[in-house]
Amino acid sequence: MTTPGSPVALRASDAERETVAARLRAAAAEGRLTLTESDERQTAAYSAGTRDELVPLTADLPEPRPDPPPRETPRGPMTANARRRFAAHAAVVAVLAGFLVTGWALGPAPFFWPMWPLFWLGVSLVVHHRRARRVPAVNPEGP
């Protein structure tokens, strides 16, 4: 029981214990802790009852690196001109695919040889779609 005016030690959550244990595992993987030290500290982390018990377990370790920023920002829809160009590209690919499959079906080839040109035609569509001009995305968080 605590008396009025005395500091209260806050209980540690499972997520806080797991965060400390993950830092300890990372430190062991980097060679900053031996396996014995890592095991002892992880045991202490998982058995910690308060946040104050977790602090000394990582006090002599460097701060973790921040997560890198996301590689891709949200993209908006394609512009009208980009949609027209992409539709034309897709139509050409569809016509070529029809000719290739028809040629294979009517020919003497024992295997489905059009798979190779169809693969590259499909890749060209994916690349076109990824590189198409787009309307700037609206950021819901504001400027």
Rank of each mutant, 00 (worst) to 15 (best):
V127N: 05
R130C: 04
E40G: 11
A88V: 08
L106N: 03
A26W: 00
P108D: 13
E16G: 06
E72A: 12
L35N: 12
E72H: 13
P66K: 06
E63R: 13
R41F: 10
A137W: 11
A29C: 02
A45H: 08
A44V: 02
F112G: 04
T50C: 07
A59Y: 03
T36P: 00
A45T: 06
A44E: 04
R23C: 02
P143F: 09
P77N: 05
A59D: 14
P136G: 11
G107M: 07
P108R: 03
S124T: 15
L61Y: 04
R41E: 09
R131W: 12
S124F: 07
P66D: 14
E18Y: 01
P140Q: 01
R131G: 12
P136T: 10
Y46W: 15
V138W: 09
A28E: 15
A29M: 04
V138G: 04
V126Q: 08
R11H: 08
R23K: 04
R11L: 14
V127W: 12
T79G: 05
W113N: 08
L54E: 02
W104K: 01
D60K: 07
V101E: 03
A91S: 11
P140V: 00
W120L: 15
A94K: 01
E63D: 15
V55Q: 13
N81L: 11
D52W: 01
E30F: 00
L106A: 15
E63C: 00
L35F: 07
E37M: 10
R130H: 10
D14W: 10
R17W: 03
V127R: 14
A80M: 02
V123I: 15
P117H: 01
L35P: 00
T34F: 07
G103Y: 06
L35T: 13
A132Q: 07
T73E: 13
T19I: 04
L125S: 10
P74D: 10
G49K: 09
T50M: 05
D14T: 10
V95M: 10
E141T: 07
T36F: 11
V95F: 15
H128S: 13
